[in-house]
Design a protein around this nucleic acid. Structure first.
Lengths: 222, 222
DNA sequence: AAGAAAAGTGAGTAAGCACTCACTTTTTAT
DNA sequence: ATAAAAAGTGAGTGCTTACTCACTTTTCTT
């Protein structure tokens, strides 16, 4: 499996901007759909070729290997996944200090839920392969922990200083909030993707209320 | 892949009680270790045989198929996973009404964290295959939603009536709490299994505090 | 319109896979 | 001690897999 090539692939992706042919588009669409449903390892290139209506050789002419086809699917997604949040929202919060932590959460959740809804299948692929594929996990986790995590910590510290967040260790707050939000995304977009329950806005308010106040009443028993 | 055989396998497991030979034990141990690390599909039977120091035929003499080897690994785990909580703790809470929801959570978390620590690798296998393997997911999810979920709902209702839990819809509370606890288990035992941060007791208190009160101060900005 | 470059094809290939089976070794029962 | 049953073996089998390559078709350039 691809060793040390995720970052390379992300850099390479930037300098590559030719638009795909119809058949290349079909290949990508079929790959995304089948990878998302059955997982990368359980999907054969011949199956993708058949679904896309192309010869198997066409896949390999363009992408070289099956690994590289997977990278071609997930790299554009990953490039959108991390920086968009960290840069955009971060700056917005830090410069204009009009936002409360609730407003920050609201903007963040709206933004990411829209993004995952638009890229549901690729998100499913990434989550599945994160768990299943040792190399991919070993490339993505450090990247996240080094690049994204510190920015989140800064945001939390800002709101702790403003007195909006409890005076727990930043690490603890970060872990709790992101475990919950991550769990929410995975359970809603990967585990139970067809449960279209409440409206998105209502769901967001539920999440915010839980993150800020929990489910207790504050009343002690007996 | 195994169709409709999970429940069958769980029933069959009950009436099967011969102790395994040394080699059978080695096969199970190797399978668990390698399945957990690389995933079921990425693991070949020849690799398991080599790791266990047996001939490949030995695996198939005992287990028949690779699928059945996976079932032999996860069925005993699943039989412990669901009923233990639902039956045991449930009754304890409902009869003696000495426990607060916090105490219930504390007992529940202690119990399950111990269980997952003792069966960490099998838990990793189950989580990975839940996401990766369509058939297994389609067998386990309904089972959970039908058998476990209603019991949890009852518990939540009891504490709602006692005024310890906020008057939100039971479904909402259940979803929030279990998304969070599920996310916690997955991130601690599957995604980052080697992060031995704080003591377990301290972690449990953090979880309870977050579930009950969230991370907000209640103070509104400006 | 002609030549070049790019895209697409599909039969073919070697390697790896889950699984079988005739056989040997070990354990159990009498 | 001996026969029967159970456990273990490993070379072999047919199938699927990712990938190749000589070739054809389409698109681009001038």
């Amino acid at each position: 499996m691809f060793k040390g090539s995720l970052l390379e692939a992300m850099v390479a992706h930037a300098s590559e901007n030719k638009k795909p042919t119809d058949k290349q588009q079909k290949i990508l669409e079929s790959a995304i759909r089948i990878f998302a449903e059955k997982g990368y390892t359980n999907t054969s290139t011949s199956e993708i070729a058949k679904a896309a209506g192309v010869a198997e050789g066409t896949i390999f002419r363009k992408y070289g290997t099956k690994d590289n086809l997977l990278l071609s699917v997930i790299v554009p997604f990953l490039k959108d996944l991390f920086p968009a949040i960290a840069e955009g929202v971060f700056n917005e919060v830090m410069t204009k200090d009009i936002l409360s932590f609730e407003d920050f959460l609201r903007a963040f959740l709206k933004n990411r839920i829209d993004f995952f809804n638009e890229n549901k299948e690729i998100f499913q692929i990434v989550v599945k392969e994160m768990l299943y594929n040792t190399e991919l996990r070993n490339e993505m986790l450090p990247f996240f922990l080094e690049n994204v995590s510190p920015r989140i910590a800064k945001i939390i510290n800002v709101f702790k200083e403003r007195g909006e967040l409890a005076d727990f260790p930043t690490r603890t707050i970060q872990k709790m909030v992101f475990t919950f939000i991550g769990g929410y995304f995975v359970s809603n977009f990967v585990l139970l993707p067809e449960n279209g329950t409440d409206s998105v806005d209502k769901e967001i308010e539920n999440i915010i209320r839980f993150v800020m106040n929990g489910v207790g009443t504050g009343k002690k028993p007996h």
